[in-house]
Design a protein around this nucleic acid. Structure first.
Lengths: 232, 232
DNA sequence: ATCTTCTTTTAACATTTTATTAACGATGCC
DNA sequence: GGCATCGTTAATAAAATGTTAAAAGAAGAT
């Protein structure tokens, strides 16, 4: 699962250093040396976290943070401030900012990575606490268990997410592209044919006759649709 | 289990930010900008905690705290005061009045969430069931003793907390991150793989066949789930 | 304090499972 | 028929987890 972090920092040396440690920890990073463009790119690339230097040219970090919080697509994305030690740090301490954590320079690589991971952990969405029922299929998102005609079936995490998404929006047709976006973690290098393979796997586990699927229908030229068989 | 927190704070910006961080931490919040209505709504909604600004219009926070303590339905609900910096006197009064903690502004998000969780921990324990039974496993949280198939087993403190947390929420899947947050004291420098090691240790002590665990199941791609074997 | 012992954490390697693609067959549609 | 789309399978690459042991850190005892 690719996790992209946006680093907004004008000091090239610091930015590179931060990038180096975050990438060593498995993150993908993007560096911005000015504020311009950060928001619009973030809408597209959906970073999991922002690391903002408070003193970036072309505006300031706090202002950017406020804008992030006001953008519905990004409001739930955590923000960590990078700040120089001293007086600046005091302002950060204030709640008026909306950052989720702050790191004062100089900082140790270990601490940087630890803080980033800790914040991401806190932001992990709690699993939904719902039961979805569709015909003879029951999906318990809390326990991550699927029951078909009373029997529990075993699914992989991706199969589960795909089934959940289809069943949650039953009746609606999704293109393969939409399913990739909704279900897969990183869609960049994944071919749309993967969806076909997963649909096949789900049909094998969920349908009594995979070749004549009752639940997961294909809509030729478009994609797939989950529906509840009329006979039920 | 949904945990609702009442925020009583007239400064809208602060209230929103507090809400943002608490909700990110998984709590449900309600904001009151005045004291009127807090008590009566609390009777109905049973919040698990109050966050009171000492200086709210329409009365004051201390008075509200006193009323909470006098209401039999709410007397056991913890209260945390939000106070302006340097108001030393307020702290003392607040604690004397029955507040369980106080946070001085400005404060960091991490501190806020940490304090709230700490207070809840303190309050929840005695109220919780002291004995958890799951299949052939018995956990006495009071005595900190675990019994498996009639035999007492010895666990370390961390093992115990992990087992307790899993067993208390049996059937639910937890990510390693959530387990770290819930079970470990300081999560900052701890890798998620530590969870795996502890699961292994618990399986060795709890399962009759650690390689084919019946209680502590792994949910690949997600985390772990505690369940009671069907045969029991 | 110092030493000892127990606990916690990480790091490394082994193992298992899952994700992805590519190739080819089947099917529907004009 | 011919073209595009979908189904199916199996091989391979990639990722997640299991497992162990050793290092680092805490807690207790002397």
């Amino acid at each position: 699962m690719e996790q992209r972090i946006f680093i907004v920092e004008d000091d090239v040396d610091i930015a590179r250093l931060v990038r180096h440690h975050l990438e060593a920890a498995g993150f993908v990073t993007r560096i911005f040396s000015r504020i311009a463009g950060v928001l619009s790119d973030a809408q597209k690339e959906q970073p999991v976290l922002f690391l903002l230097d408070i003193m970036v040219p072309g505006g300031d970090g706090m202002e950017l943070c406020r804008q992030i919080r006001q953008s519905s697509a990004l409001a739930a994305t955590p923000v960590i401030f990078l700040t120089a030690k001293g007086a600046e740090a005091d302002r950060i301490n204030g709640l008026e900012l909306g950052a989720d954590d702050y790191i004062t320079k100089p900082f140790s690589p270990r601490e940087l990575v630890a803080r980033v991971k800790a914040v991401l952990r806190r932001f992990e969405k709690p699993l939904d606490k719902t039961k979805i029922t569709a015909g003879a299929i029951e999906i318990d998102t809390n326990a991550m268990v699927v029951t078909v005609r009373g029997e529990a079936i075993i699914t992989t995490a991706t199969e589960f997410r795909l089934l959940e998404h289809l069943a949650r929006h039953q009746g609606k047709v999704f293109t393969r592209g939409h399913l990739l976006d909704a279900v897969w973690r990183d869609t960049h290098f994944v071919s749309e044919r993967s969806v076909d393979v997963y649909v096949r796997k789900l049909r094998e586990k969920v349908e009594s006759e995979p070749e004549m699927p009752l639940y997961i229908k294909t809509v030729r030229g478009v994609g797939y649709r989950f529906e509840v068989p009329k006979s039920l």
